[in-house]
Amino acid sequence: MTTMNCDEFVRLVTAYLDEDLDAGTERRFTGHISECGGCDVYLRQIRVTVTELGHLPAHGLTDQARETLLNAFRDWSAR
């Protein structure tokens, strides 16, 4: 089994998180984590980034736009 270097590790992070690595590559990937502190930190930081993206506040339509659309709906349903 060939070892994985950091460049390859970084290239494969997204595929790993999508659980899309073949078994052999996944073993090399997780093997690299156990021997490289930097890549361990890196993977965690990618996970935190993904989590934070999921927590971004989402805004709705302005009241005015909403009112316009509800009026449009009334016109449309009276068609």
Partner: peptide
């Protein structure tokens, strides 16, 4: 109209993103 209003509330934030 209530259903349309509920859809506007539920999906508009994602649609805006």
């Amino acid at each position: 109209e209530d259903m349309f209003a509920a859809l506007l509330t539920a999906w508009s934030p994602g649609m805006l993103q």
